[in-house]
């Protein structure tokens, strides 16, 4: 079994980074997760297959899979899993690991997340117009046309604010996030 930093296997690292992840050992390979997944047809591996691959130590293949990126966080798999494996949270763990290793293929997901978080780290609030503009301008300028129409409609209905709103105590939030990132950087994922 290929081992990662500190002599821990890929499987052990995945389990330890996920609250309640220990139950992954009990996976029956029943497919309740893959069967329940609303975006299952778009995934290159069903979650169940990823679990078998994790146990087989196939780190590169798992972290290059598009599966976690198609997770819509609906938690159907989690509540239906007969072994109470926190599948949705495992998907979060895999996304994080994939980013840390630079393994993900479809950059759209990561960049959207990054755009979103950029707003949050700057203002403390998310800002829908800024997000849409920044994300789609960098990704799919053509889409801006259709999105733009929708945005206009939203603005007419008073549902899209033209200006970002910020929290008052930004320095406090920045200090917290900086410290959290510092602690996170000290641990391997």
């Amino acid at each position: 079994m290929p081992e990662g930093p500190n002599g821990r296997t890929f499987y052990q690292r995945v389990v330890q980074a996920t609250p309640g992840g220990k139950s992954l050992a009990q996976c029956l390979q029943c497919g309740s997760c893959g069967g329940s997944c609303p975006s299952g047809p778009d995934m290159d591996h069903s979650p169940r297959q990823l679990f078998a691959m994790i146990m087989a130590g196939m780190e590169d293949e798992v972290l290059s899979s598009n599966t976690p990126w198609h997770c819509v966080s609906c938690y159907y798999c989690t509540v239906r899993c007969p072994q109470q494996i926190p599948i949705t949270d495992l998907m979060y763990t895999l996304k994080q690991m994939a980013i840390a290793r630079g393994k993900y293929r479809e950059s759209g997901h990561v960049d959207f997340s990054n755009s979103f978080i950029g707003m949050v780290e700057r203002f403390g609030r998310s800002f829908e117009l800024g997000l849409a503009t920044r994300y789609h301008l960098t990704h799919n300028p053509l889409k801006m046309v259709s999105k733009g129409t929708l945005g206009l409609q939203m603005m007419v209905k008073g549902r899209l604010s033209p200006l970002p709103e910020s929290i008052r105590n930004m320095p406090q939030l920045t200090a917290i996030l900086t410290e959290a990132k510092r602690i996170a950087a000290q641990q391997e994922v």
């Binding site: 978080i117 939030l173 990132k181 602690i183």
Partner: peptide, 25 residues
């Protein structure tokens, strides 16, 4: 008073500790 964004589904995908900390504030 002065609440901040919860990070939606995005922050947890990228970096879990800042994500939890953002919410914990």
């Amino acid at each position: 008073d002065d609440w901040n964004c919860c990070g939606a589904t995005e922050y947890f995908s990228l970096n879990r500790l800042p994500a939890y900390s953002l919410v914990a504030r």
